[in-house]
Lab assay of single mutants.
Amino acid sequence: MSIQHFRVALIPFFAAFCLPVFAHPETLVKVKDAEDQLGARVGYIELDLNSGKILESFRPEERFPMMSTFKVLLCGAVLSRVDAGQEQLGRRIHYSQNDLVEYSPVTEKHLTDGMTVRELCSAAITMSDNTAANLLLTTIGGPKELTAFLHNMGDHVTRLDRWEPELNEAIPNDERDTTMPAAMATTLRKLLTGELLTLASRQQLIDWMEADKVAGPLLRSALPAGWFIADKSGAGERGSRGIIAALGPDGKPSRIVVIYTTGSQATMDERNRQIAEIGASLIKHW
């Protein structure tokens, strides 16, 4: 067993022997301040990774656009098919120029040779490549099948209805392509620590998230040296922004954090800054 596999296998073990965790309302004060600064709703939840206990939450059962955070769930569904012998990570998928959609920095470079399922998941999570996500959605049967996968996990809230990039439209009061912070946090925890996926697939999923290259201005910008984070960000229309993450000190994750916002007129930089400040408060009061 590799060191990384050992780390993920012992996530519940280490967490069980940690000192009790206590909620700190100071972080919620910052979440509410972010709402004021952005002029928009902000949803927040913080779960203990081992027990699933909610440590703090704000608007945990209000719907927010998922945006690209759905790509972690998508690759979880792909990995479940791999575990069941219905898919192979090494299978190569070929596609054409007509398949390319807006923001496809990886797939646009491989029109000639195609990409493997493993490479597509890596591109979808680490670079948020939209064509990679659409190609992977095709392998599982489309958005409705991802929703069905989530329902089978016990998540009857999260739903995907459309493809990239239309799913980022974020129309107010439109339930399409949305989740709730509580539902997303619980589902992410199941994917990373539950028995739904094999140990190898859980490790692969967290490795992809740990290698995320496009979430630097968010929670990662607030992390002290030595902290662990595996995350996936999302951005959408109407001032929408979000991030889902597993993080913790001492090089291992111990909490799940989900943050979503929508309806702001603020710039992307300002949305990023507010999420980073929430992260800084979380870490300060850990």
Results as ranks from 00 to 15, higher is better:
E102M: 11
T116V: 07
T112Q: 06
S264K: 04
K284V: 03
T131G: 13
F228Y: 15
V31Q: 02
F228L: 07
L192Q: 04
N152F: 01
V78Q: 12
L74S: 11
F64K: 14
D113E: 15
E87C: 14
I275H: 11
K53P: 02
P172T: 05
K144T: 08
E46A: 15
P165V: 13
K71F: 02
M180P: 01
E35D: 07
S264H: 05
P249A: 10
D129F: 15
P224V: 06
T126F: 12
I45P: 05
H285M: 01
C121I: 12
A235R: 11
L150S: 04
S80F: 04
H94G: 13
D161Y: 02
T147P: 11
L199V: 03
A34E: 14
F149I: 11
P65K: 14
V42N: 04
S264M: 12
V29M: 15
K109S: 12
F70P: 07
L247M: 08
L205M: 09
R189P: 11
Q274E: 01
V42W: 00
F58I: 13
I93A: 15
P249H: 12
A34I: 01
V117Q: 00
E35H: 04
P65R: 12
V82I: 09
M268L: 12
E270I: 14
N50R: 05
L135G: 13
T262V: 08
L150K: 00
A170Y: 00
T261K: 08
A276Q: 15
L282P: 07
W163S: 13
I243C: 13
Q204P: 10
R59G: 01
A245C: 12
Q204M: 12
A77D: 11
L167N: 08
A170C: 01
E270H: 15
P105H: 07
K213T: 04
R241K: 14
G39L: 11
L74K: 07
Q97G: 05
H151P: 03
W286K: 12
T69S: 03
R241C: 04
R241M: 13
E26S: 10
L199T: 05
F64W: 10
V106N: 10
G154I: 06
V72T: 11
P224Q: 00
G242W: 08
R159A: 04
V157P: 07
D155N: 03
P143M: 13
Q37S: 11
E195H: 12
T139V: 02
A132G: 11
T262N: 06
F64T: 12
V157K: 05
G43H: 10
T69N: 06
T112N: 09
L146K: 08
A34K: 04
V257Q: 04
M153D: 12
S254Q: 00
D250C: 03
D212R: 14
R238M: 12
A230I: 13
I243Q: 00
Q274A: 02
H24L: 07
S104M: 06
A182T: 10
